[in-house]
Design a protein around this nucleic acid. Structure first.
Lengths: 191, 191
DNA sequence: GGCAAAAATTACCCTATGGTAAGAAAGCTA
DNA sequence: TAGCTTTCTTACCATAGGGTAATTTTTGCC
């Protein structure tokens, strides 16, 4: 919880009452590898902050194939933001891919925080600014890099993730099949 | 200008002083097809709101190929947000692809608006939330749809854009070559 | 250790897309 | 209208990547 509070304090001035509110709606939980926190097609209740471990957000297309939108490691937020902001059912499944410690927030209570404690507006705005930047970069990478280049970049951005997740999840994040990723890895090891 | 003020008012309560400030830092301008507002490699001064017309943000890769990150039509914001939020030089070029009326904001003055008039925090947070949702959707579409499907979707999302822009810009947005897009269009017309 | 399950690799063939180049069509300007 | 420029289409070949399936390797568990 301290990590999160410190993170908030780095973006805004946090009154003690506001801090109390955050703590009061936060539920620290341990989740195990394989646990599903949000399931595609159902209502989205929560937003999660990862203390340590790793979660994964993916959607399943009409052919049953998984596509990974996001990996969330230490100090990242994860949820189905499409569903929350559009007030829709979930298009994503969020799954725990390594035993993790997370902080769970009820999305509605979290949303009330802005009217109760306006100092959170600045915090969340800056959060979202960073989020937009990282998504813009991801799209540009997808457009201009080849699959092997994207894989290299991924390994740099998530140096520990290979411990957590099978390669076929990485492939589904990069937008290729696990067979292609395997070929890319073979080529890479030849060098 | 009214459109923008109304847009702001739909997300926050705008005091008359705050409205005055917005107006005071806003520069309404006309720009012509071909004008370059931000050039890759240079400092980013401004953020733009499109009243009507169309702007395009793209980057040029090491091989000289263009990749379109965004088209901005009526009521959209556009700038190099990567550069602004990271305080870096521009990685994008922003170009006017149809005679347009825009409102220009100095990015630094715009950023001061939050400390001067905190009511803008909520407006911008909600803006960014929508932006994140649209980027998440774009990434999911890129992962799970084929090129012809993405092209169909694009035409639905930007029904008028074919008037403004040559097909090779659309191709560079979809992540394919203009030749591939041409083939896709031929296949489509056969049906 | 030994078995079962999961994951990764390899192989085969096929298709979509890229690169290059040439030609056709459309748009602009004098 | 004529001529130039830009854009779009078509063709040809090369290649990366997909789909299916078989095999190997790794992992987890008893």
């Amino acid at each position: 919880m301290e990590d999160l509070i410190n993170k908030i304090k780095s973006s805004t001035t946090l009154s003690s009452k506001a801090e109390e509110y955050v703590v009061s709606i936060a539920k620290e939980t341990s989740v195990s590898k394989g646990d599903v926190l949000i399931r595609q097609g159902q209502a989205v209740k929560n937003t999660y902050f990862v203390k340590d471990g790793c979660l994964r957000a993916y959607c399943i297309d009409k052919n049953g194939k998984e596509h990974t939108l996001q990996f969330a490691i230490k100090n990242w937020w994860i949820s189905d933001f499409i569903a929350i902001y559009n007030n829709e059912l979930s298009t994503l499944t969020i799954e725990c891919i390594a035993d993790s410690n997370i902080i769970e927030f009820n999305a509605k209570l979290l949303d009330e925080i802005y009217s109760k404690f306006p100092e959170f507006e600045a915090f969340q705005r800056k959060n979202l600014e960073r989020h937009v930047v990282s998504l813009h970069k991801r799209i540009l990478n997808q457009l201009q890099l080849t699959a092997p280049e994207r894989y290299e970049l991924f390994l740099n951005q998530y140096p520990d993730i290979e411990q957590y997740t099978p390669n076929y999840h990485i492939a589904s994040y990069l937008g290729i099949t696990q067979q292609s990723l395997s070929r890319i890895r073979v080529e890479k090891s030849k060098k």
